[in-house]
Amino acid sequence: MDSTSPLISETANYLNRQFTNIDQISSKQQMELEVEGQRYFLSVTPFADEYGLDWLIGIAISESNLMGAVEANTRATILVSLIILAGTLILGIVITRKITHPILQLNRATQEMSLGRWEKIENNTRFKEVRSLTNSFNQMAWQLSKTLETLEHRVQERTSELTSVNKQLQVEIAERKKTETDRERLITELQKALENVKTLSGFLPICSHCKKIRDDDGKWHDVADYVHDRSEAEFSHGICPECAQKYYPDFDIYSDK
Results as ranks from 00 to 15, higher is better:
1 M>L: 04
6 P>K: 10
17 R>Y: 03
17 R>L: 09
19 F>M: 07
21 N>L: 07
24 Q>R: 09
26 S>N: 12
26 S>K: 14
30 Q>F: 11
33 L>Q: 03
35 V>H: 02
36 E>A: 15
42 L>N: 05
43 S>G: 07
43 S>H: 09
46 P>L: 00
46 P>W: 01
46 P>R: 00
47 F>V: 06
47 F>E: 13
48 A>V: 06
52 G>S: 02
52 G>V: 02
56 L>Q: 02
57 I>R: 09
69 A>T: 13
70 V>I: 14
77 T>E: 14
79 L>Q: 14
87 G>T: 04
91 L>Y: 08
95 I>G: 10
100 T>K: 03
101 H>I: 00
102 P>Y: 05
105 Q>I: 09
107 N>E: 11
109 A>L: 05
114 S>M: 01
114 S>H: 04
115 L>T: 09
116 G>F: 01
116 G>D: 01
119 E>V: 15
119 E>W: 04
121 I>A: 08
124 N>A: 09
126 R>H: 02
128 K>E: 06
130 V>F: 07
130 V>W: 03
132 S>E: 14
135 N>I: 02
136 S>I: 05
136 S>G: 10
141 A>C: 10
145 S>R: 11
147 T>Q: 11
148 L>T: 11
150 T>K: 08
153 H>G: 10
154 R>C: 04
157 E>H: 03
160 S>T: 12
160 S>C: 06
161 E>Q: 09
161 E>Y: 02
162 L>C: 05
164 S>G: 08
169 L>M: 13
174 A>E: 12
174 A>C: 05
175 E>Q: 12
176 R>M: 10
177 K>W: 00
178 K>Q: 03
180 E>H: 04
181 T>W: 08
185 R>G: 06
189 E>V: 11
190 L>T: 14
191 Q>T: 15
193 A>T: 15
195 E>Q: 13
195 E>C: 05
201 S>D: 08
202 G>C: 00
206 I>M: 13
207 C>M: 08
209 H>V: 14
210 C>F: 03
210 C>K: 01
215 D>Y: 03
216 D>W: 07
219 K>P: 00
221 H>E: 03
227 V>P: 15
231 S>H: 05
233 A>C: 14
243 C>E: 10
246 K>T: 08
248 Y>W: 07
249 P>N: 00
250 D>K: 08
251 F>C: 10
251 F>T: 15
251 F>Q: 14
253 I>V: 15
254 Y>Q: 10
256 D>N: 15
